[in-house]
Design a protein around this nucleic acid. Structure first.
Length: 297
DNA sequence: GTCACGTCTGAAAATAAATC
DNA sequence: GATTTATTTTCAGACGTGAC
């Protein structure tokens, strides 16, 4: 597709627009002539540009941004903008337009907002590859499902790259960010949920996360309403209930859940469930037999 | 973050019940 | 009777919690 005042210009339109949370409307690339200007104007969609080479100026909410290779600027719907190619070294850029109820929120998560619509310092070749992948999918027109899934996938990788470049902003700007000690508790919970079969010392775990045992226990209980020991016991016993449905012996189930002593396992199981492991298993069998009997009847 | 103290955990030994 | 599995009791050390 030709476009005046451009050395090169191409655009791929998405023929399968859905009412999805996020829609890719079109994607393309251009190499305008020196001093080529768009705007002042507004768009009804979100338009993301990444500069592949050269430089230019983006004017947004009264502020002027000088942008070069690897920089990205984002135009939000309904907000006045303009941008202009440099007079000696005009830029070339790629773009993708999106819309949908989730689009703004997704951009915000990557650190792109109406007050900060710039991402700097990307590898231009890498980003160009992602834009090109979106273009190629749109060009192939392989049906609604393939096009939607593929463009969505490539676009999310693009967003991940923006988020990586904005990691310094995200680290300090998130209102709901976790404190260091809360993050330590989250790490401990993940450890409990995946390593429950291993012996655990709360003292060592707290030390490995950089906290004293008593302080760590306090924070853990504030967040989970359970002590670390109670929490891991709950994880272990829930896992034990699942394993008791198999043919493993009570001792094997206990070992698989982090109880090195089958006798202690039995005691704990009864404390939490009101039944010994064998009684619990017997209850499961009776239930299964009852169901089988009902099916026969 | 530390201390003191009461509580809980888990290993060991003894015992009981079930199965062959 | 031998073996396997589950339960109970005991106690040292680890843990949880309130006060500081």
């Amino acid at each position: 597709m030709d476009n005046p005042e451009h050395y090169e210009y191409r655009i791929q339109i998405n023929p399968y627009l859905l009412n999805a949370d996020l829609n890719i409307i079109f994607a393309g690339a251009a190499r305008p002539e020196p001093l080529h200007k768009i705007g002042p104007a507004v768009h009804p969609y979100i338009l993301i540009h990444t500069v592949e080479s050269g430089c230019g100026t983006f004017v947004w909410q009264g502020k002027s941004y000088r942008l070069g290779q690897g920089d990205t600027f984002v135009i939000f719907p309904g907000v006045l903008f303009s941008y202009e190619a440099d007079h000696t070294e005009p830029w070339s850029y790629r773009w993708v337009a999106i819309q949908g109820p989730n689009a703004l929120e997704m951009l915000k998560k990557t650190g792109i907002t109406t007050t900060d619509p710039i991402v700097r310092g990307a590898d231009p070749e890498h980003l160009a590859g992602l834009f090109e992948s979106i273009e190629r999918v749109l060009e192939q027109q392989s049906g609604e499902t393939v096009t939607t899934l593929a463009t969505d996938g490539w676009f999310r990788i693009l967003l991940a790259e923006f988020a990586r470049l904005n990691v310094h902003k995200l680290r300090y700007s998130s209102a709901g960010a976790l404190t260091d000690s809360e993050r330590a508790v989250e790490q401990a919970i993940r450890w409990f949920q995946t390593q429950y079969m291993l012996p655990v010392s709360i003292d060592k775990l707290a030390a490995s996360l950089g906290y004293h045992r008593t302080h760590f226990t306090k924070v853990f209980k504030q967040l989970t309403s359970q002590s670390p020991k109670q929490y891991i016991n709950q994880v272990r016993l829930e896992r034990a209930k699942e394993l008791l449905r198999t043919n493993l012996s009570v001792e094997q189930v206990g070992n698989s859940c982090g109880f090195t002593d089958p006798l202690y396992f039995s005691k704990q199981f009864k404390l939490w469930t009101g039944e010994s492991p064998s009684q619990f298993r017997e209850g499961l069998r009776r239930g299964a037999d009852g169901n089988a009997g009902n099916k026969k009847a």
